[in-house]
Amino acid sequence: MTTDALKTATKHLVVILIGLAMTYPLAWMLVSAVRDEPDIFTTPGLWPVGDDLANFVEGWDSAGLPFSRYLVNSSLIALGAIVGNLVSCSMAAYAFARLRFRGRRVFFGIMLLTIMLPIHVVIVPQYVIFSQLGWVNTFWPLIVPKLLATDAFFVFLMVQFIRGIPRELDEAARIDGAGFFRIYAQILLPLMRPALVTTTIFTFIWTWNDFFTQLIYLTDPAMFSTSVALRSLVDSTSASSWGPLFAMSVVSLVPVFVVFLVGQKYIVQGIATTGGK
């Protein structure tokens, strides 16, 4: 073996070992979820001992309502957020990237600044407004802000993307008599597909993982999202029955994991070009 080959092999070995160490906790959670109760905390290894689904069956109904209810709730919130972000952010991005108007630089600067704004600064008045509207324990407080393009990160991502599309396409369409809306809807939107897919994926994951705003707005168990339901499960779990809690934790991560597997390419491109979370 040459020293180069040895070096490469060592490097791979190190990278693999670190990778294993990093994913070990996740694997352990997965295996613990299918283990019999007393074994969870006596075996750091990864072989399942109970290998049945008792924890899932028990966990499914232990948060009050069937867990499927919370999965549906989270899915509805995510769906609303995705539609909102796709429509509102792409509209704003088109204006910022392609149209000339007075105040563009100022507004663009403000838009960039809002990416970094902590939500805490607006949460109290927002809560007051939404509770006046009778929207506490509905999904609207979680969806309406998305319809109004407040996830400025995605506006920026789409602006970046549109800038990469040749302007000649717009101009050719203009000469053919297309108005601004047609250029947006029929020329740019189809070409923006990768940016729209990235937006969809990140909106889904961030909405699914979100806890802070859902904790504030969803207090009625029937409206709980998966995150909030899981938290209520933590509170009601005694130290001895972690199996069902782990099982439901695993269930709550499955959608994110699937989206990750399917959308890896877009996720990596998305953060690489704009620097997401």
Binding site: A95, L99, F101, I110, T114, V122, P145, L148
Partner: peptide
């Protein structure tokens, strides 16, 4: 063009006023 731009920005401007800047001032 400017009119079109502001039309496209309606959701974002509404969000800026109602969800971000307004609540900031209120807070």
């Amino acid at each position: 063009e400017e009119r079109a731009a502001y039309l496209f920005l309606v959701p974002w401007l509404a969000g800026l006023v109602l969800i971000t800047a307004g609540p900031m001032v209120a807070s």
